[in-house]
Design a protein around this nucleic acid. Structure first.
Lengths: 156, 156
DNA sequence: GATAATGTACTCGGATATGTTGTGTCCGAGTTGTTCTGG
DNA sequence: CCAGAACAACTCGGACACAACATATCCGAGTACATTATC
């Protein structure tokens, strides 16, 4: 069980975009150089956030990516599930109904208890991430961070 | 983020072994046929549970795998982390200290807030799975299930 | 008849191929800001 | 000096190779039981 490496990039990128003034965009190339990551691959992943409705993209000069919603309305879960999908990492294939020890249908009326418990754990994970918004993240940064990010991501 | 398919096999296998009488073992071939899964691959994964101290293995005739501890002392987390590892699926590579926007060392005294929040979510997931033991799983099975499993996994 | 040695069948354990998914890269379509020309 | 059109540069968006891990498989080392020969 491993999240893509790009998850870290996108979380930081979203946090950086949240620090920009409303209406201002930053391009994929800017963000890539800002973090020292491959520009083309970052751009590919940013598209996933656009498809998920977390970011909005604008083409042409002065274009780029910006938040599609206020930072208070974007949770870490929104970002993570945009890049990795919302599926439960545990996939129940009903092996209780297969092989020599297959259970009779009467015993399979309710969901497999193991699948239920694994789903509950996944829900706990999702709830933990859903409780943190980008605004919460920004609130923990030092005072100097936001002006600094704005200046670094503003093109001359 | 996806758990190996074999995770389901091992959870069910551990639950089945927990239903056997103390001291009785079931071989990898038996368990594989019981669930209709590839025997060699299941055996390979069962070894991971042995290395983790969850199962104990015995070679030779009448040998096989059995629980290394009472079912009350084995949690779902023990099984899942034995096969998949205990590492956090989110790996912080400190990109905040890299690239054009690298933060000064003074701002990196404490752990990156994003890594902290991702770790908290992982802890919530682990706590949820650690709270469920194999004995809890067995308690939800119908009365007929345990004698049935014992009879199917007992060799003639 | 009891015992010890032998043989056999069964078990796990690790080393070896293959398929799928994430990783990384490239080029094309579209849009905006700029520049140049004409009135 | 102003307006319009053409141009050019920059942006995203999707299509194309490469690599790492999970998947699947095989054969060898070791052990317990059953058998057999001996005392």
């Amino acid at each position: 069980m491993k999240l893509p490496t790009s998850t870290e990039w996108l979380l930081h990128a979203a946090a950086s975009l949240a620090q920009l003034e409303p209406g201002v965009s930053a391009s994929a190339a800017q963000l890539a150089e800002h973090y020292g990551v491959p520009a083309a691959y970052l751009a590919k992943q940013l598209q996933a956030l656009v498809r998920a409705g977390v970011l909005a993209a604008t083409t042409g000069p002065r274009g780029g990516f910006r938040l599609a919603r206020p930072a208070t309305a974007i949770s870490l879960l929104d970002v993570v599930e945009a890049v990795d999908g919302a599926a439960n990492p545990y996939e129940c294939r009903e092996i209780r109904q297969q092989g020599r020890g297959a259970l009779p249908a009467a015993d399979c009326r309710s969901t497999c208890i193991l699948a239920v418990k694994m789903a509950e754990a996944h829900d706990a994970w999702r709830a933990s991430l859903a409780a943190v918004s980008l605004a919460d993240v920004l609130a923990t940064l030092p005072e100097t961070a936001i002006p600094r990010t704005r200046s670094l991501l503003t093109r001359g």
